[in-house]
Amino acid sequence: MKHQSRIQKSKEWVYRHSLNARICHWITVVSFVYLLLSGIMIFLQFPELYWGKVGFQGYPAVFRLSDWGLSWEEADALGNRRWGRSYHYLFAWIFISNGVIYLGWNLWQKKFYKKMLPSRDELRLSHLKADLGNHVRFRAAKGNAARHYNVLQKISYLMVLFLLFPFMLVSGLAQMPAFTAISPELIDLFGGRQTARTLHVVATVILVLFVLVHVIEVFVAGAVNQIRAMITGNYAIQAEDEK
């Protein structure tokens, strides 16, 4: 059974990811990991979230880590703000510079338009349903369909790039005393800096979920092929089984 399938399948190589996309992707991976870890280190030393303009220990919280089994003292001992704050800002700068280069390059090259903008056909309900079905059943695209991003992939990438990442930046800036002096509208936009802090954490959770699904999909579609493509640019396409 094993060699049977080997013989039948023919491979075709396509150049899938440009050098720019590959470099930016891995810089994003490293900075995301550092931003997440340093963010957690900061959060652990004040593990409560509030809504509105003010919030402090003893003020009604919308989230308390102590309700989830980790006491304030335990969380505090695990965290490290000195390390966390230093690395959070360092990698924020790296992340933002990288993001600006990536967005600028791809907008200029019209890559978002060509590769990520869903077509009208793809946005039809029947197509979306079919695509969702493939995802739920962990069925990866083969043959011609594997040449392009599928529609849910396109939508999620666009949301992360143009919604979640900018939101992380803006909700981060809204917590900075100097930045809210520059632009007090930021506080009003969120309705308070504590709300901005809380939503910063909520968006982090959404991003982590995105990364989880993203990594699962890499394995579903074939980890070696996917990761190789993000390193060398070349992606192997298996011809569709013809019967």
């Binding site: 303009k53 402090f56 005393p177």
Partner: peptide
Amino acid sequence: TSHICEQGWSAI
């Protein structure tokens, strides 16, 4: 004004 602690809390 708001007093903004780097730890994350703030009060007016």
